[in-house]
């Protein structure tokens, strides 16, 4: 399921505040390019190979920081397995990966 494909304007902090606490998320960050396809194509190709149900994804633009962010919503508490798989997939060096979960951020 795709939540949205058109880039939405938001900062990293704004995105984190909007996350659904009942789910887990992978957030991929990179320098903003021309299109979201070129920015996250390696990640989007890898997602179907991960052994986890993807609930949806959305691309954001932080125009101030000139960063693009791909937010992937997944089943809760599956991030350890996904991280292991992502590390072995060898994502491009310019993509940084974060994990956020169902617990409240302190």
């Amino acid at each position: 399921m795709i939540l949205a494909t058109g880039p939405v304007s938001a900062s990293f902090e704004e995105i984190k505040r909007e996350l659904d606490r009942a789910c887990s998320y992978m957030i991929f960050e990179t320098r903003a390019g021309i299109t979201e396809e070129s920015e996250f194509s390696a990640v989007l190709k890898a997602l179907p190979r991960l052994q986890v149900r993807i609930r949806g994804w959305k691309v954001y633009r932080d125009r101030v920081a000139e960063r693009a962010l791909l937010v992937v919503k997944i089943d809760p508490d599956r991030t350890d397995r996904i991280m292991q798989e992502l590390m072995s997939l060898g994502l491009p060096e310019n993509i940084t990966c974060y994990a956020y979960g169902s617990r409240p951020f302190r």
């Binding site: 350890d80 996904i82 991280m83 994990a99 956020y100 979960g101 169902s102 617990r103 951020f105 302190r106």
Partner: peptide, 17 residues
């Protein structure tokens, strides 16, 4: 707790708080 999202949340807490 061996959980990536917990590690990330704790890193942010340790840095910011």
């Amino acid at each position: 707790e061996s959980k990536p999202e917990k590690g990330v949340a704790e890193a942010e807490r340790l840095i910011n708080t």
